[in-house]
Amino acid sequence: MIFTPDETRRYARHLVLKGMGGPGQQALKAAKVLVVGAGGLGSPVIAYLTAAGIGTLGIVDNDTVSLSNLQRQVLHTVGGIGSGKVQSAANFAAALNPHVTVTSHAVRFEPDNATGLIADYDLVIDGTDNFATRLSIATACEAAGKPLISGAVSMYDGQLTVFLPDGPRFADLYPASPDDADLPSCEATGVLGPLTGIIGTLMAMEAIKLITGIGTPLVGRLLMYDGRDARFTELTY
C-alpha cells in the first residue's frame, strides 16, 4: 500500500515512531472501523482515528445535534445544531483528513440491524450511553467474531475495556442485565465534559493498538478512571 506525498507528510510522526512505522500506518490505512455513537465518547474516538489515518470509518447515530451536546461532544458546533450527528461528524472528519473514507449510518443500532451494520468492519467501538444498546452491540460482535472496544462515563467517572472473540465475554463483566430505567442518565446526573475526552481518547488508543499489534490491549481488564481524584484503577474479569 503506497502513501501519497501528502500522507507521508501527514503521518510523519507515526512513520518515524519505533514499533509503528510504515507497516503500522499501512495497517491503519487498510482498517475498517465502526463507531457506534457520535456523542461524548464518539467525538474523540472519531477525531483521533480520523487524524491517525484509518482507511474506512463507519459512524452510527440517529440523533441530532442540540445545544446541550456542545459542552462535551467536540465534533459538533453551534452551526450544526438541528442537523444529524452522523452528518456533522462526517463533515468534521472530511475537513480533518480527506484520505479517510467515512460511511454514514443515520440509524439507531438495534438487534434487527446489528448484523448488517457490523458486517463490513474489522473492529467495532461502542460509544453509546445506554445498557440495552451496549448489550446489543456486544451480542452482535460476539456472534460475528468481531473485536469490540466498549467505554462508558457518568458524572466524574469513566471506564473502558476490550472484548476479543477468544477472550472474556460481555456477560462475564455484566452477568446481570440492569434495566436502563434504573440506571442514572446523563440528563439526570450530568457528566463533566473532559471526562468523555479522557475515556474516548483511551478507546481510540486501544483501537490503534489492536489494528497495529502494538502493546497489550485491555482484554479481560476493566480500566476505571476517577476524575475527582485523578486515579486509575484496574480490575480483571
Rank of each mutant, 00 (worst) to 15 (best):
M1K: 12
T4S: 15
P5Q: 08
D6W: 15
T8G: 00
T8Q: 13
T8W: 02
Y11T: 08
H14R: 11
H14Q: 15
L17P: 01
G19T: 03
M20Q: 06
Q26I: 13
A27I: 08
A27Q: 14
K29T: 06
K32P: 05
K32L: 05
V36F: 07
G37P: 02
A38R: 09
P44T: 04
V45T: 02
I46K: 07
A47L: 13
T50C: 14
T56C: 08
L57Y: 06
G58M: 08
I59Y: 06
T64H: 13
T64R: 14
T64Q: 13
T64M: 04
S66G: 11
L67G: 01
S68F: 04
Q71V: 11
Q71M: 09
Q71A: 14
L75Y: 08
L75C: 10
T77I: 00
V78L: 12
V78Q: 14
I81Y: 05
G82S: 03
G84M: 02
G84H: 10
F92I: 01
A94Y: 00
P98V: 04
H99V: 01
H99F: 15
T103R: 15
H105E: 10
A106K: 13
V107S: 09
V107E: 15
P111E: 12
L117Q: 14
A119Y: 07
Y121D: 09
D122I: 02
V124L: 03
I125W: 04
N130W: 00
L135A: 14
L135C: 10
A144V: 06
K146H: 10
L148E: 13
I149P: 05
S150C: 14
G151T: 05
V153F: 02
T161D: 00
T161E: 03
R169L: 09
P175K: 08
S177A: 15
A181V: 06
D182F: 00
L183C: 10
E187R: 14
A188S: 15
V191C: 07
G193W: 07
I198Q: 03
I199M: 00
G200R: 08
G200A: 12
T201D: 11
E206I: 00
A207M: 03
I208R: 06
I208T: 13
K209A: 04
I211A: 10
T212W: 07
R221S: 11
R221Q: 13
Y225K: 01
Y225D: 01
D226A: 10
R228N: 12
T233F: 08
T233L: 12
T233E: 13
